[in-house]
Design a protein around this nucleic acid. Sequence first.
DNA 1: CCCTCAACTGAATGTATATTCACATTAGCT
DNA 2: AGCTAATGTGAATATACATTCAGTTGAGGG
Lengths: 198, 198
Amino acid sequence: MSVKKFATEIRREQIAQAAVELIASQGMKGFNMAGLARQVGVAPSAIYHHFKNKDEVIEAVLDHLQNRLLGNVRSVLSMTPHPLDQLKQLLAAHVELVVGHSAMPRILFSEDIYGGKSEHRSRLKDIIMRYISELASIFRQGQQVRSIRPELDPEALAVMFLGLLQPTAILWHLSDGEFDAKKQVEKGWSIFAEAIRP
Amino acid sequence: MSVKKFATEIRREQIAQAAVELIASQGMKGFNMAGLARQVGVAPSAIYHHFKNKDEVIEAVLDHLQNRLLGNVRSVLSMTPHPLDQLKQLLAAHVELVVGHSAMPRILFSEDIYGGKSEHRSRLKDIIMRYISELASIFRQGQQVRSIRPELDPEALAVMFLGLLQPTAILWHLSDGEFDAKKQVEKGWSIFAEAIRP
DNA sequence: CCCTCAACTGAATGTATATTCACATTAGCT
DNA sequence: AGCTAATGTGAATATACATTCAGTTGAGGG
């Protein structure tokens, strides 16, 4: 059989990428080593040359997720100087991420991670906490330039900000894309934005 | 062996109750027929005299969940006449539900339902939609008595309301109860409440 | 070109789980 | 008490996985 071989460095990347796609389309429930191997185009046992086990693949997926999230933040920060605009754009980017490529919520809502191995849990917690801390620093920035009321707790605002998206994402998923996530988030944002203005 | 027998009507209730407790403590991942049977005190095969299969047990759990949620709503509605007070108390009750007895988020975030059998998905969607519609009618009530700005979309407000709790619940779980859910929700509510006041 | 080693294969193993079935036991009616 | 149908049991079956391993193959340096 003519089977192409790749350096493990390359394969790891291919496998991680395939895992993200698989989770995005099938969810954690339908994510298994055989399916992953098929997606990559190798035998299941080949995966084990590049990853110790399934958990390690999941780790790689979480890394990918974190890079994606923080990448969003960095990219938005560089696009506009106004904290409120940054937040609005971040929200839009976040919606795109959830609606276009649903790996994130599927991982977030998955018990394999959420209620599974404690290492994955704390890894996921770190990712969310870091994201919240990035958000909080944008809110703080906004307070310094007097665009946001100074007495509000930036961390609490960051958590609220996530709340603008999260139930929306769930509804969007449960309704098979019928629920208008974009409109909901826009309405939520306009109420939220006005509430935090001085 | 002296094994007590029960009418199927009673057993169904016992089994459903045990299932809810099991899911609350172990999550969907650790919820299996053998464990359920052990919790009830019967052999695994006995379950099948009362439920066709695991899916039917899950149905019963979802029923339980729905009753609990709508029960919260009805009880709060009868306790105070002011829509804003009703909402505040509902939020508190919701926090209690999530923090005290974590079956709800564990089910909500579980792929077994979220990404599983489409009947479960639409069942879950119905539950959430009904809850949202109850919330929306409270918001509408508030608009009628001029406690809430009339131009805001009640359904959108209902979804936002859920957003006050949901990321908080996730953080609470991921941090093993360390994150102060109550305080976060209070802060979120006070910002939200002020934002929707005329 | 060929040799070596990392990359790969296919089959085997082990485990966890839902579900079924032939048989046993209990509750409750007459 | 004795009968009967509902309720329960234990063992067997089936499936879906992750993971391992002995051997095979291809790519790149000598």
